[in-house]
Design a protein around this nucleic acid. Sequence first.
DNA 1: CTCTATTCTTAACACGTGTAAAAACGTCTT
DNA 2: AAGACGTTTTTACACGTGTTAAGAATAGAG
Lengths: 345, 345
Amino acid sequence: MAKPEIHTMEELSAAIGVSRPTLSRYFQDPTKVSKSSVERIRRGLERVEYIPNFFATRMNRKTTGMIGVIIPYLNDLFFTRLLESIERAAMRAGYTVITQCSHSDPEIEARAAETFLSMNVDGAVVAPLGNHSDLKVYERLNARLPFVLMDSRPARLSGVDFVGTDHIQSTGLITEYLGRVGGPPVFLAMPRVNFNALEREVAYIAKMEELGLEPTIIGVDPLNAEGHFEAHGLAVLDRYFSKGDFINSSILCANDRVAIGALRAAAHHGLEPGSLRRGGLRIAGHDDYPLSQFMIPTLTTVAQNVEAIGQAAVDRLIEKLRVEKFQANQTVQLMDGVLKVRDSA
Amino acid sequence: MAKPEIHTMEELSAAIGVSRPTLSRYFQDPTKVSKSSVERIRRGLERVEYIPNFFATRMNRKTTGMIGVIIPYLNDLFFTRLLESIERAAMRAGYTVITQCSHSDPEIEARAAETFLSMNVDGAVVAPLGNHSDLKVYERLNARLPFVLMDSRPARLSGVDFVGTDHIQSTGLITEYLGRVGGPPVFLAMPRVNFNALEREVAYIAKMEELGLEPTIIGVDPLNAEGHFEAHGLAVLDRYFSKGDFINSSILCANDRVAIGALRAAAHHGLEPGSLRRGGLRIAGHDDYPLSQFMIPTLTTVAQNVEAIGQAAVDRLIEKLRVEKFQANQTVQLMDGVLKVRDSA
DNA sequence: CTCTATTCTTAACACGTGTAAAAACGTCTT
DNA sequence: AAGACGTTTTTACACGTGTTAAGAATAGAG
């Protein structure tokens, strides 16, 4: 049962009687070798245990066929969906994805970038950490690799390609909806862990002013550690609801995870947010988090087109690494959000 | 501003006046080099852009310092928590984690295993895909690497280390609790995507028989594609509730995601699951999914000790790769679940 | 100042595969 | 049978770093 283990192409060449360069070509692209040889090699490999050494192959090829992806954290289904869509798109294009998670730590993010450089990845896609991440890391990657930022965009960074949601549009859309069907919406901010947090605040204010309404923002000061969005939404609204504030308001949460905390706060105070009764409490979110449709009540939100963002990021990356050094001008792709009207607002 | 880019140690050696072998030792372990040289190298590296080539270093070292991790899917916070705890544990021990996601596809899982072998990872931790995954993949990894399975354990696989939750204990715990505070619990199964699905069913039946109660299992036939646990729970209970079945039962869901769907089904039918009223509908889950505490009502469940499982898996792996070929006997570590009594049951 | 221990440099080979050039082989056409 | 063409083999060098052996340089102790 135990096939003999073979560790080098040289040995394999001796074992199955095909020259090493032919084997090398076979493993890179079987069509580069005549059918008769392919057959001989196939049969040989069945009798023997051999895998080409990953490092040795990558070291000598001009292209490694790998793209590096960095996401800020894993415990968020939004990012895992994004990651999945990127992996699928990359797989379709024949690339291998190496994922690194920065765990909300700029140092880890910087180290991951170095790893990508030292691995000669063909390109890199990064979802930035946030305000406290080191912009030099992105500039460095952008200067040395085909590089695309996604999801959230540092304000003070120029010349870097970006793919994400148009928050002016998406946040404006739901702000307008809330203003139309209920009272003027209040914005429940999220901890400013990334640049989208602020972008959505700004978009909300702009839309409110356009509608001639007075913007109100609550929950800016983070009460919790980063990344605990639900706990943040719960804590902020629990305080307000305890004082009787906002119990009849339309509340637009900066994202669905905050909104889930908000729904919990409402339930805790016996409030039933919903669009049915005019004038009552309404709660809405942003992102269309996978669980939002199962919340009680189901959560009204704006869906980000995650699949399109992942696909576009990979497409743009591949476009860049094809033209090699032509350094085309900066591309910024902003996808529209889609309103998902459910029961909560 | 732009430092000169240096691509090899040879060039670096010439540029900063330190011999190549000394540089090699410096990058592997700076303490292997005298303080004066360390200082000279440090200063040199500040004036120059250089990163050792990842592949060339890994190819020649006997140990790569990498451990491979395979998880079945990303869009589940249970697995991302597990992954995070493994990454933390590995980082503490000085190892780099390479993650691959099998996307519920045995072929991708097998390919990931091959990749790990060809990368000469020092060890591998795998959360199995499920019934349809190829056991030979695990046997192969186990024969060639320090290897640990986690989370879910194939029944017909021997001699492989395992770390996971003791489902007899955990499921027994909540079954007993439900039986004590309410009517005899019904078990809402989950699609049998992994071995835990069946283990929990069996554990439920065993405990029920121990308690002298009649076990009832519903939702075994999956109505949905794999991985859509919430939709499964919702669909199954929606059917039953529509007919008036189980509306006053204690329902133990195979995991929290199923339970979230179950809560949604209850809400849809105007039912309010909870422990307050005797004799009414109760819903409980398993896992302590991160969002369970924010559900409406908050979800009663059994917490898996994810942090301990990740840590134990890494510990065991490191233990194995220290003793190298001593092939110690099989180790099976089962962690206890902890009851989390909340509002839903 | 010499002796010894440490650390460094030099030189060389190793790892496993990519790749190029030239020679050898096979098959098909004429 | 000769020629043309495509494929394979042979041979050799390349990639960037690990690693070793021998000798040179340096430091500290006496």
